[in-house]
Write a protein that binds this DNA or RNA. Sequence first.
DNA 1: AGCTTTGAGCTAACGCTATTAGCCCCAGGA
DNA 2: TCCTGGGGCTAATAGCGTTAGCTCAAAGCT
Lengths: 187, 187
Amino acid sequence: MPRAGLDPTSVVAAGAELADEVGLAALTMGGLAERVGVRTPSLYKHVAGQDDLVRRIAALALEESAVAVGTAIQGRSGRDALAAAAQAFRAYVLAHPGRYATTVGLEPAGPDDPLVAAGVRALAAFRAVLRGYDLPAADEDHALRTLRSALHGFATLQAAHGFQWSADVDESFTWLVDLLDRGLRGS
Amino acid sequence: MPRAGLDPTSVVAAGAELADEVGLAALTMGGLAERVGVRTPSLYKHVAGQDDLVRRIAALALEESAVAVGTAIQGRSGRDALAAAAQAFRAYVLAHPGRYATTVGLEPAGPDDPLVAAGVRALAAFRAVLRGYDLPAADEDHALRTLRSALHGFATLQAAHGFQWSADVDESFTWLVDLLDRGLRGS
DNA sequence: AGCTTTGAGCTAACGCTATTAGCCCCAGGA
DNA sequence: TCCTGGGGCTAATAGCGTTAGCTCAAAGCT
């Protein structure tokens, strides 16, 4: 039995891919083992368990989405930055629904959990968007939560096929972005 | 062994309560059986399986949230109606996080699935809120999706303890509602 | 080159989950 | 009173995550 040459990083990456393909709920240790060409128990040499695997995928997803949004808003500000950030974020969630699903609903294990660092970076990208609007400092946290709620809600509902009826989803999304822009400007 | 006197309705109701208490992920057939005072396999005389159970809980949750929102907006319109609907919706999700979690990400099994009827009723309540704003007919679907995304996103993020840092969550929510009101009015 | 040591991968096994098969016996209608 | 339907049971299966303990390939040292 030749060595498979795995390490935590490659296992987590394969897990993220698998989650995107089959959905987070169907992400199984057996399936992941098969994908990386190894028997199930061998995975435990690289990750502590399914919980740990999911946490690491979540950190990866936060990092990646932060990079995607951060890149999209370079050289833009105001409404341009908002639209670019929103598009980049939604594109990321739709392209990686399994990865993104891991990021909701997990408590960081401790103060030095890599998750909190990744989460802070993801929020920083959106905070940068808000700098293009003249918000009172006291409103910045509220605006950040509002922005995050709207984008998170839209992306997860679409990823879950929550929009059943007819109107064009892309149009609805630009409508949402326009509403946010109006709301942020006229506060 | 005396009869326990169960029926599908009482089993689903108990399942919804249990899901709220322990979280949807920890909703187990064994746990539900213990709660209703019966052995696990007996549940299958009332629901077809865990999938069926979750679908029925989802239909219940959609129905209940539609009633909550519909009641809240009676006699109100415009911004008042929006605020009342938003508050009622968020209160419902926070009071019944397990129930609500069942409603995201399930495809209706067929055209006469009770789920679609319940979903339509839930949407109708929000549609009624939008009637208080002067929206072009073509924008109504977009506005509905926007409203739903924002409220769904905020409520689920809060239910998942997604708002870690300091600012007051209730204040953030009224800020979100104000932004939606401004955006809907000034379209 | 040979020797040592580390750890990646394996098999075997356990416990918990959902689910099915098949039996029993209580309750309501004839 | 009988008898039939169906709610509840026990027993058993299959699939999951996880642990224990073994083996041998690869990397490092002499």
